[in-house]
């Protein structure tokens, strides 16, 4: 299977860091309090290993927001948080204290918007730097558990670009993951775009 070399890994990490940085700015404006977002590591893993990568103790129940993108490569982009962390995010943003049972449409829409802002920001940085265009779909929110991440079956993906995201809001530190689900051809196309970018920048 393809692997990311050190420079590719570093470049992708930096691109997504710029994306989440922009998203943090937009989110801070909406909720009127400072939000920090960062993406520490980028990994490329086969889709059947995603579950074990995410299967830390806190990752029993998930809250995820997914959006599909099509362009030079197609991807399902997913922002995923352990359910408890997702609650921390919406309750800080909406100023409420809720249990999972109390989560309604209202919070799910808010969570969708948060995911939409983060995912759009990442994709638009990719599009800017690679000089390409994507078509973005609307975000979907869902709850799932470890036994079914919920998105594998919808999508004919084989690889996942996996990024750990940490989000700081009002002192609370929340960790989740950003996943880009890619088919074989899309993965190749992503590598092509990335190589073109590195060459264009004189880094290869």
């Amino acid at each position: 299977m393809r692997e990311l070399d050190e420079l590719q890994q570093d470049a992708l990490g930096e691109i997504f860091n710029i994306g989440v940085g922009r998203a943090a700015g937009a989110l801070s404006q909406i909720v009127h309090s400072e939000i920090e977002l960062s993406v520490p590591q980028v990994e490329l893993v086969p889709i059947n290993q995603v579950r074990s990568t995410l299967s830390g103790g806190e990752f029993l129940h998930f809250s995820s927001v997914s959006q599909s993108f099509s362009g030079p490569f197609d991807a399902e982009a997913v922002l995923i948080f352990p359910e408890a962390n997702a609650l921390v995010i919406v309750s800080h943003m909406l100023g409420t204290h809720l249990s999972p049972e109390e989560l309604s449409e209202y919070e799910q829409e808010a969570m969708c918007e948060v995911g939409n802002i983060i995912l759009n920001a990442c994709i638009s940085v990719l599009a800017d730097l690679f000089h390409v265009e994507f078509n973005g779909g609307l975000p979907k929110h869902r709850f799932s558990d470890r036994d079914g991440l919920g998105f594998e079956s919808d999508y004919d993906a084989e690889f996942v670009l996996l990024l750990k995201v940490s989000m700081k809001i009002n002192q609370a530190n929340v960790v989740g993951h950003l996943l880009f689900l890619l088919g074989v051809q899309s993965l190749e196309a992503l590598f092509d775009c990335l190589e073109k970018y590195l060459i264009e920048q004189g880094l290869r």
């Binding site: 969708c112 918007e113 759009n120 599009a127 078509n135 973005g136 779909g137």
Partner: peptide
């Protein structure tokens, strides 16, 4: 603007706006 220039879809929720 994002929809017209970057072809991105967005959602504005009543909770955050």
């Amino acid at each position: 603007d994002a929809a017209l220039t970057q072809r991105m879809a967005s959602l504005l929720s009543p909770g955050l706006n």
